[in-house]
Simulated assay, not measured.
Amino acid sequence: MEMQQVRYFLALSSTLNFTRAAEECNVTQPALTRAIKTLEDELGGELLRRERQHSHLTELGRRMLPLLQQCYDAATSAKSLAKAVQSSDVALLNVTISNSVNIALLVSPFTELFRAYPGVHLKISRGSPTAVVDALKNGDVELAVAGPLGAAWDRLDTWPLFQEEIELVVNSDHPLARRNESDVALDQLAGEPVLSRIDWETSEELSRRLAAKGFTAQAAHEVETDHDLLALLEANAGVGFVSTTAPRSSSVRRLKLRDVDISRVVAVYAVAGRHRSPVATTLLNLLRSTDWSPFGVSEPA
């Protein structure tokens, strides 16, 4: 199936007249007729039935019309976008951000990127650490922002951005939240159901550090994102752990762990040796030069 065949059919379905459709498409009537006949052969039936001056779409033609219209519109949009890219009117940039990174952190570098590239077409995907690495491996994205990815892949270039603490979070009505102290001892968490994060970059390190202090979490519900964790905390479903820059809620209180100091490093990642577009390089430089201190974090160790 060729796009010109689809275009001819759309014109014909609008005019219901081969002569006017041919004029609209700027082709001869025999050429349009042949193209429609070829399309009908491919689709296995007549699309339009001629009845002297009252031609009409067949049942197959009516069913194909919205699908072929959508196909044509998508092809036209793709062609326009490709033309804009070639003329530098649009710069495409695919970026993936871990579920555990608050996108609000990136407003400033994104703002500067849009100033540098007014026509940038930014596509942002979200996912687990595994999905982040897969997106980089497969070439689906040029850059990724995430917490520690460890030795997930030896071809990752890594630029640390900032270091942030991991904090305990509880519902504001929880007994631990109603105390005057801003920190909590691990033994005070005994018997508390701990909400766990599925495929969180910090899960393994957090579990290891807590276990080293003799604390084993009593597993409760599982969630993937900070927003889901906060929702369950607002429902007083247990206690949990979040990073300093995670979204906040007035219904939840954050506390420091008195017995153990846990932090993580958020970084920007790319594939070593793989070509980066100018717009990707610009965003990388903006991220690396951003002052993250207003978010309550520190320089990477």
Rank of each mutant, 00 (worst) to 15 (best):
S98F: 07
N17Y: 04
F9Q: 00
T216G: 13
V95G: 08
F18M: 13
T158H: 05
Q70D: 12
Q86K: 14
T15W: 09
E142V: 02
A177Y: 09
W159G: 04
S263W: 13
L149N: 00
P109C: 01
Q4P: 03
S55R: 10
S243R: 05
F241Q: 05
V101D: 06
R274I: 07
H221K: 12
R50N: 08
G150S: 02
L232I: 02
H121C: 09
L168V: 00
G150D: 09
L168D: 00
L287H: 13
A190R: 15
D134C: 04
G150V: 06
G147F: 10
Q86N: 14
V107E: 15
T19K: 08
S182C: 04
L81T: 05
L230H: 09
T290D: 03
A91C: 13
T216P: 01
V120D: 04
L287I: 02
T33D: 06
M64K: 09
A280E: 02
I166F: 08
L48A: 03
L176G: 01
G296E: 06
L32G: 06
Q53L: 13
E165I: 12
K256D: 14
D157K: 13
L16E: 03
T281N: 15
Q188V: 00
L113V: 02
S203L: 09
T76I: 09
W159K: 04
A116T: 14
K213Q: 15
C25D: 07
A177P: 12
R248K: 12
A231N: 03
G273D: 14
H121M: 12
S128D: 07
H174M: 01
E204C: 03
V27C: 10
R274G: 01
N171Y: 06
E205V: 11
R197S: 09
V6I: 12
K137N: 02
I166P: 03
R62N: 07
L186I: 15
A35I: 10
T28R: 04
M64P: 00
Q5I: 07
S128Q: 06
T282S: 15
T158M: 10
V252R: 00
P66L: 00
V169D: 02
I36V: 06
V27W: 08
V133G: 02
N94E: 13
V260M: 02
T58I: 06
L57H: 08
G44M: 05
R253D: 14
A84T: 00
G214F: 11
F241W: 05
A220E: 01
D226W: 09
F114L: 11
L136H: 10
L65G: 02
W159C: 05
N17L: 03
D187S: 14
H56W: 13
G296W: 09
R264T: 14
A246I: 02
V268R: 08
R179S: 11
A185M: 03
Q69T: 14
D226R: 04
D41H: 12
R264H: 12
E299N: 15
N285G: 15
S14R: 15
D89M: 11
R52H: 13
F295T: 09
D154R: 12
L283M: 10
L122Q: 10
S263H: 13
L47T: 01
P294A: 03
F18Q: 11
T225V: 03
